Amino acid sequence: MNQAVLHYVYDPMCSWCWGFKKTWLQLVEALANDEVEINYHLGGLAPDSDQVMPEELQQTLQGIWRTIHAKLGTEFNFDFWTECQPQRSTYPACRACLIAREEGKEQEMLLAIQQAYYLQAKNPSLSSTLIELAEQVGLEGERFATQLTSQEINTKLMKEISVSRAMPIQGFPSLVLTVGGDVFPIAVDYNNWQKTHKQITQLINNK
């Protein structure tokens, strides 16, 4: 049987990825029984910038948070918008997940960033926040801080973003199944992991 791989394309500061978290983890648990390999891919939602996010964009994103809460029941802490200076930059958080991956802690880092951003009103665009979170998940703070601004990690991120964007994706989160040399975009259902699981297993069984 050909090895099936499900590629999860995400951004740690993507609010829809936060909304998808519970369903995604249920899907991952179900797929473990089907021997489907799971690969995480960083999508790179917003490039580096130290500029404060324009007020109009802040309002737009707050509207998206409200929509996700209304549709999915996902919790958000809106204090972020008054206690932090929002920046439209997710690449630092992406680099943090890439560094954590090399230590086998990508999923822990992703969750730490999401909880800091959406529940604790902390700003993951800032290196200081990311260093604090890295230490929380068991990474060595000074080494992490050095890596975060290294050319090596930035080059790896740029390559990964290129690979992610070459996949048949529609924004983040996106799911792509590869099996037997074929590539299938998988519809993201935010409420029903069983429906997604059925689609994946049918594609695998038809190979």
Rank of each mutant, 00 (worst) to 15 (best):
H7K: 13
H7S: 11
Y10Q: 04
W18V: 03
K22E: 13
K22P: 00
V28K: 15
D34P: 08
E35V: 04
I38L: 15
N39T: 02
A46D: 09
D50K: 10
V52H: 07
M53Q: 04
Q58V: 15
Q59M: 11
L61S: 02
L61W: 10
L61P: 00
W65D: 03
W65R: 06
L72D: 09
W81L: 11
W81A: 11
T82Y: 06
R88N: 11
R101I: 00
R101N: 03
L110Q: 06
Y117Q: 04
L119E: 05
Q120E: 14
K122Q: 14
K122M: 12
K122F: 07
N123V: 12
N123D: 15
S128W: 05
T129R: 02
E132P: 00
G138N: 14
G138E: 15
L139W: 08
G141N: 10
E142C: 08
T146R: 14
Q147R: 11
Q147N: 12
T149I: 15
I153H: 05
M158C: 08
I161V: 15
V163W: 13
V163Y: 14
S164P: 04
A166R: 14
M167V: 07
F172P: 07
P173E: 07
V176T: 02
V176P: 02
L177V: 00
G180C: 03
G181E: 06
I186Y: 01
N191V: 03
N191Y: 08
W193G: 00
K195L: 11
K195V: 10
H197A: 04
H197V: 00
I204P: 01
N205F: 11
N205S: 14
